[in-house]
Design a binder for these strands. Structure first.
Lengths: 342, 342
DNA sequence: CGCTAAAATGAAAGCGCTTTCATTTCCGGA
DNA sequence: TCCGGAAATGAAAGCGCTTTCATTTTAGCG
């Protein structure tokens, strides 16, 4: 009792926000007990716990996770690097990821690489400096410095949005090559005279192109033009690319766009030129974006559960963190959604 | 020399990642000097600096920002809470924000509130625990606990996407009420027999509705129906809402949708029912999303520079951090983009 | 050359927690 | 009533940096 009173009496004016020690003093216990009350309440006697909680509520104490993380070597932070968040494609992945992380008590540190591997490297460095408990990267293409830094850091890694037999650590995604091949088959079945691919130049878009072209190469004797543009490809890109293809003349045309956005542009150009869709020009997109069912005609496209990629990535990394076994490659489904454009 | 050798000799096997002290030992200087080499290189003699940098490069040392932040009380972290990132509207703001922050050496900690103020409160607590150098919130409506926690934390705050004479600290945005009023005026000039508003129920959407309705109330004698739905409002919501309005019968209809998505739905329903747009049904959206120019007919809408809101928010908060004066309210422009739908 | 101010470096303390490990308190059974 | 083990609490050290403040070096100048 004596001790407690003394302590309360000599209590300084609390410069700055309250600390764990302040709470301990006010509650008449030691700092360790407050720490336990917060992190492992079961280890604290109910009476004590209640007293501490009262003090915390009264003071509005917010624990300092920097200090906590430094001491415990666990930050409850998960970092994710995606190319962009404005281009829709990754936004839902982020949402899924975030939802899953938050419900497990983790927080998301977001990095935007803009499809630039150098920036990815810089981001990785900056992120590792915060000692996240895990990191999520988009794609399987990274600079060797990035790979080195990452593996050297010894934390769980999840690569998303692509499929690979040899991930850095774990991966969640699908084969873009197979997507391209599937679209090729789909269009082949429709029987067109010309085939073409238009789209972005990031590694995954290229894989889709390759899959598409390879599948076709064995069948058609005609050259398969591919028009490439910077990621992310835009509506305007699509219009222009289709214009070019149409200007070359020739028979009925089947086009695989590397995203719904670029496909929508192509579709619009086709309609504007009076082509019949899908008879004269057939178009398949990628992503099944929100607007895809509402274009004219509705866009046939490849659907991926973008949110699920985030969810699965979160689960993989959380399991990794808790030391459980995790499949090194989680395959995510895709399917062609058949609508009016092809 | 003797000292240096000894130190190198007794060097332990470096359990775990290298620390500042390790670098210091290897470079034959004290930890402080390494710290300075990293943070304020000008204070270090070129020769020494070079030696330290060599060691850093060789070891792949990544500073621990938790420790740094704890000691310096600056984390170079900025947190932002937005309702969602998948609904396009805030995604570009995040991109703008992030770009500006990164180039100033800061990192973004993202929180997604899902239009839920309780979640905003929880996020705020979790975020403050990481001691960010500043925090950015969406909107000016917060729970009182959130406000208390925020002001108590004594860090720079920027509220975005709304306008207010009394921000918590600083704000960047525009008056949604004025947007509604402007749209009302725009549609009034076209002369329709009925007016209606359809849209979400978040505070900002409501303000737009209020502005729209109030502006109209003085002019038209007819009741102005408002159909409300949960945020974010969807394409389907728009179709159904317009269907309801059309079912009521009556003369030519002018509708303000609370987002381009819901407006697009309404537009689609109007066309599907064979209405002439914009003669029978006129529709104005909000946001000028990517697809707006490409709907049929193209969507007349309200354009906001969403990215700029992020950029300005970043600037405000960075200035605040460096102690400069900052306007407590930064107004962002909006304008009606006239297309085919109204 | 010697002196002084500026430049460069270092020693020590401490940021606010968590982690052992040790100690005290509690409780049921003999 | 006393004892042993479990439950509850505490003491001390330390996580990896930065911040004073003190000390040493360097350079400029009469």
């Amino acid at each position: 009792m004596m001790t407690k009173r003394e302590k309360n009496t000599q209590q300084p004016p609390l410069s700055g926000p309250a600390t764990l020690a302040d709470i301990a003093r006010l509650a008449g216990v030691s700092p360790v007990t407050v720490s336990r009350a917060i992190n492992t309440p079961k280890l604290v006697k109910p009476r004590t716990l209640e007293a501490i909680e009262r003090v915390i509520a009264k003071t509005g104490y917010v624990p300092n996770l920097l200090a906590g993380g430094l001491a415990s070597r666990r930050t409850r932070l998960i970092a994710a690097i995606v190319p962009s968040v404005a281009s829709t494609i990754f936004a839902e992945t982020i949402e899924g990821l975030n939802a899953e992380l938050v419900s497990a008590g983790y927080q998301l540190l977001l990095g935007l690489s803009g499809y630039d591997l150098n920036r990815e490297l810089e981001l990785t460095r900056a992120i590792l400096a915060r000692r996240p408990d895990g990191i999520i990267l988009t794609g399987i293409t990274h600079m060797k410095e990035t790979r080195a830094m990452l593996t050297g850091a010894g934390l769980p890694i999840v690569e998303i949005w692509d499929s690979t037999p040899s991930p850095l650590d774990t991966a969640v995604g699908f084969s873009h090559y197979d997507v391209g091949a599937l679209v090729a088959e789909y269009l082949l079945a429709k029987g067109h005279e010309r085939y073409a691919q238009i789209g972005a130049n990031d590694p995954r878009a290229r894989q889709r192109r390759d899959g598409f072209v390879s599948r076709l190469a064995g069948i058609t004797t005609v050259e398969i033009p591919a028009i490439e543009m910077n990621s992310p490809s835009t509506f305007q890109d699509g219009r222009e690319a289709l214009g070019q293809l149409l200007d070359r003349g020739g028979g009925s045309l089947a086009v695989f766009g590397s995203s719904d956005v670029v496909a929508h542009g192509a579709l619009t150009e086709a309609i504007a030129r009076g082509c019949r869709v899908p008879e004269d020009v057939a178009i398949v997109g990628f992503g099944d974006f929100d607007f895809a069912p509402h274009t004219y005609p509705p866009l046939t496209t490849v659907r991926i559960d973008r949110r699920m990629i985030g969810t699965q990535a979160a689960r993989s990394i959380l399991r990794k963190i808790s030391g459980e076994d995790v499949a090194s490659m989680v395959e995510v489904d895709f399917e062609i959604v058949r609508r009016g454009s092809a």
